[in-house]
Write a protein that binds this DNA or RNA. Structure first.
Lengths: 363, 363
DNA sequence: AATTAGCACTCAGAAGGCGAGAGTGCCAGC
DNA sequence: GCTGGCACTCTCGCCTTCTGAGTGCTAATT
């Protein structure tokens, strides 16, 4: 079924209007918007056809039209303009991004906050799970019965744990342990750390007191943590401002769904990598989001990490504005995080920061 | 103004009923509840007096009574029974607590989840800010231009950072740096790390490339992070289930307030240490919580850390049940976290965990 | 053939009126 | 001092009515 040029214009006008007002749009307001120089009767005829074709819906006979999911889909795919950000908006994002991006988790929630406050919709920040291995092990002797275990993972993140023992160990043992771990536990997957492996490591360094077990537990824990994706949700309260979520039960349904990270981590790991992805209403797999839309942007968070930032809102969403903002944020992030020359990125920032504090530094 | 025994019974009955139903309580339902063998007329007279005294309120002339904040206050202070948890509830809490309490931040959000799911109200988990100093420094040489900085704080938490340089350093320099930091930067407060100190440290180890600055920045960052309190909010959506938050604007007001951690960290740092604290409606400093109540429990999260766990709900809250649950959780936590013999606690758990996984271990 | 003006029709939502019911306050009697 | 009784008040739910926005269709116009 072909859809003519004029119909497209009308559809666009209806959607723009509906996004702005949340009220069904009548033929008259289209005329008044002035995009087409036609009488309301003609518009009515066209709208009737658009309804028949499934792009518009009618809440009841004597009301205006609202866009159907299919209508939104067409809008998102073809009709909507690629919005540019205002200078203020771009500045706001740049400011936030250039600020200290301390640690990954902190950063993720900050990015979520940024996205949510820019769009006025709830934002979801996800870190895609990554299967890592341990790259190197270090044990720092602190005390006769205390040491620090440090593990650096294949994605160059570093984790540590203070280990406190109910008995004493000598420094030699610590060194031996470290070397055994560096030979036996480096480069293997979490599942490969088996009791058998632990047993042989124990024999290798003469450990009879379970030290190997303790450190292995740390390793498993660390790897497990790296593997499980993380998610942050911010700005849920924006939902309550929207007329479509005036009903607390509806709001609660969506908000509960969002606050359970289990759900979120499952969903959106496929999809084209570089551009914005829009999921409209019933296109969502989760029934809780059947009346909501999701806009997703992806970015590379350096070293094997993929980040996802998503916005959740009603199907009547300012797709074009949200997409523009997300795109800008995601691009900015990829840029900041994965600088080509110094892939670990973070330190570069740090040094810069010190620079502005007035200490000398040549980078 | 003295308040008689009978009045107290009536007040208690009104509050209990109101907590259960959220509807104004009439004299008849008090009679039917059977706590007093009096006619409704007598109850009516008493209720009129309670109203005059300010313990009850009347939404309108021909409605029943609802408790005033003052009424709740009396109820919480004197009247309500110390509820015991059911075995199931206690078990549920015990189970959750005995599970892996990985890291502090993870733990905090877990505790919040626990409290929220037990009480069906939103929960706030706070870690009181602690001023720390650095206890020891270690630098691990990784690569010609990469090393890991490890700092152990006075509260025995360990932090690390991978530092990647745009130039190369030799291992001797790393060792020198570590020793300088261990002499000059240990035991001092964040504010004391001044450009002057950094300058002298640079001279002490012959650093002309800003290495000291980079590491000092890490130190400042770490100390800063330890100093800033953390907060997690969970289960906000429970609010939407309550009749007093059917109005999305009310719900949004409270939820927005909660989701801004700035607010939370300010409030509840005083107060008696060991028992439950209840803040009723207008007793709240924050105007956003004027119609809500907060129940707070404190616990010791080991090593200088104080934890706070709070529940936010309508003034019509199941104070007794919530208090009982929070008390149990807080006591359990203090217990688990601050074991007298091995104050660092976590490892003990870890070892146990390994044990149950079938590895030998004598603790 | 496409567009438009005109008109009858539909239907949600606001406004108003009514009755039921829950609860009160007070009084007179026990 | 307590209680039964009674008149009074006020909210809430229900029904009806009314209004107006918007439609679909037809006949006239370009």
């Amino acid at each position: 079924m072909e859809i003519g040029d004029r119909k497209k214009k009308i559809l666009t006008a209806v959607i723009d209007e509906y996004i702005a007002t949340a009220e069904p749009v009548g033929s008259k307001s289209i005329v008044e918007s002035g995009v087409l120089d036609l009488s309301s009767a003609t518009i009515r005829n066209e709208m009737a056809e658009l309804t028949a074709m499934g792009f518009l819906e009618q809440p009841h006979t004597s009301a205006g039209r609202i866009p159907s999911p299919q209508g939104y889909r067409l809008y998102v795919n073809e009709l909507m303009e690629r919005q540019r950000l205002s200078i203020d908006e771009a500045d706001a994002i740049n400011d936030s991004l250039s600020q200290k991006m301390k640690q990954l988790d902190k950063m993720m929630s900050d990015v979520g906050k940024l996205a949510s406050s820019m769009t006025h919709y709830p934002a979801v920040a996800l870190a895609a799970p990554v299967a890592s291995t341990i790259k190197r092990f270090d044990l720092i002797y602190v005390d006769f019965n205390t040491f620090i275990a440090v593990a650096m993972l294949s994605n160059d993140s570093v984790h540590n744990k203070l280990i406190h023992l109910p008995f004493s160990v000598d420094q030699g043992m610590i060194v031996r342990l470290a070397s055994v771990f560096n030979t036996n536990f480096v480069g293997i997957q979490e599942e490969k750390i088996t009791p058998t492996l632990i047993g042989s490591a124990e024999r290798a360094c003469g450990d009879t007191m379970g030290l190997v077990s303790v450190i292995a537990a740390f390793a498993i824990d660390t790897l497990g943590k790296a593997k499980e994706g993380q998610s942050y949700v911010t700005g849920e309260t924006h939902l309550l401002r929207l007329p479509e979520f005036r009903d607390p039960d509806k709001a609660r349904e969506v908000m509960s769904y969002l606050s359970d990270s289990e759900h979120l981590l499952g969903l959106p790991n496929d999809g084209s990598d570089d551009d914005i992805q829009v999921i409209i209403g019933p296109e969502n797999v989760a029934k809780e989001l059947k009346d909501s839309s999701v806009v997703i942007a992806r970015y590379n968070a350096g070293d094997n990490m993929k980040g996802i930032i998503g916005i959740v809102g009603p199907t009547r969403m300012d797709y074009s504005g949200v997409a523009a903002k997300l795109r800008y944020i995601a691009e900015g992030l990829s840029h900041v995080l994965a600088m080509p020359e110094a892939p670990r990125g973070f330190e570069k920032l740090q040094i810069k920061e010190m620079n502005t504090n007035g200490h000398k530094e040549d980078v």
